[in-house]
């Protein structure tokens, strides 16, 4: 048990437990917060895998922006406690079974094909620094980059339009 492995296991445990907690929590705000914990854990893993920029982006964008947006909406809509009767009774057991099957099969496939011999590398200083990522982004991936900016524009406009239209109807009625 090397220290790296130990650290990894701890962080992984945190991530999984936070995810499970997010699922099971009845309070929506708690779910959001558990998800933030999950994101932070994953950011830590990114760091250990030698992706500092991505890790920070994760914290800033995901945990910082997206989850905050979620929390705003949760506050706006009221974190109601919904009645938990299932209209489709067999959905729950089937979903659980299938997810377990998914995990089992995926793990089996991974271990049989990849095996434990393939090891990840320790993080280096120069491999994934922002300069290198920026070079890649603006040279090879410049088109997706520009398109992504358009996507963001569209999303912003769309969000405004959607909520505005609703408002107009409300004003009419």
């Amino acid at each position: 048990m090397t220290p790296q492995l130990f650290v990894f296991l701890v962080i992984a445990a945190i991530a999984v437990i936070a995810a499970v907690a997010m699922l099971l929590s009845r309070n929506t705000v708690y779910s959001a917060l558990y998800l933030i914990v999950n994101f932070l854990a994953i950011a830590a893993i990114y760091l250990s895998l030698g992706a500092p920029f991505v890790a920070l982006a994760q914290v800033t964008v995901y945990a910082g922006a997206i989850m905050v947006l979620f929390l705003f909406v949760i506050m706006m809509l009221g974190a109601e406690k919904l009645k938990e009767q299932e209209p489709l009774k067999w959905q729950r057991p089937l979903a659980i079974f299938l997810s377990l099957a998914l995990v089992g099969e995926a793990v089996y496939a991974l271990t049989s094909h990849i095996g434990q011999d393939f090891l990840t590398q320790p993080p280096t200083d120069t491999l994934a620094d922002p300069k290198a990522i920026g070079a890649l982004l603006f040279n090879q991936y410049s088109l997706p980059f520009e398109i992504t900016s358009i996507i963001l524009l569209v999303a912003a406009v769309g969000a405004v339009v959607l909520t505005r239209a609703g408002k107009k109807e409300e004003e009419k009625s």
Binding site: F8, S99, L119
Partner: peptide
């Protein structure tokens, strides 16, 4: 370092949990 499959396994578990949530 750490075998690659551990990370992949973690990802699979998280994915499955996400599906369950949906």
């Amino acid at each position: 370092m750490i075998p690659l499959v551990y990370y992949l396994g973690l990802a699979v578990i998280l994915f499955a949990l996400g599906i369950l949530g949906v």
